[in-house]
Amino acid sequence: MKVSKIINRNKTIAEQVSAMRCKYPQFTTDFTSHHSLKVKGTLKPTARSDVYTFVLKLNLTDAPKLKIISPELQKNSKGEDAPHLYPGEYLCLYQPKYCEFERTDYLCDTIIPWISMWLYYYEVWQLTDTWLGGGEHPKKS
């Protein structure tokens, strides 16, 4: 089998788990079934930032789901909710239609760095009331 074919095929849960454990040994990465996994860990986006605990769940039939569990996400000084969240406070880290994350990608190379970025822009949004990280919003139907 050609190397490119291995790289480009969908990753299994076992591959996701072992890659995550290898690159981020400090996270707790577990199988939750044959087709799902759960990662729990901490990140801070800048040297002076808070430390945030996140939980990442992936089920092969669904998109990865990511939530910050502590500290609790706050409204800004205007009383607005943080932008780029799905209902249930799941972080919106990528635009599905641009295929920025696909099942051929490792979570540890995509989603994890994006969480840091999201947290960075969240903190800046708290301080300035403006989301400076760009992005897109779903059209209101």
Binding site: L43, P45, P83, C92, S116, M117, L119, H137
Partner: peptide, 27 residues
Amino acid sequence: TSRATGILTSAASIGAAAVKSNTFYGK
């Protein structure tokens, strides 16, 4: 981002994961 802490840094620094392009989406 630093793999040890998550801190944003230069992709070229030791122990860093490069941040791939993304578009924040959602409400």
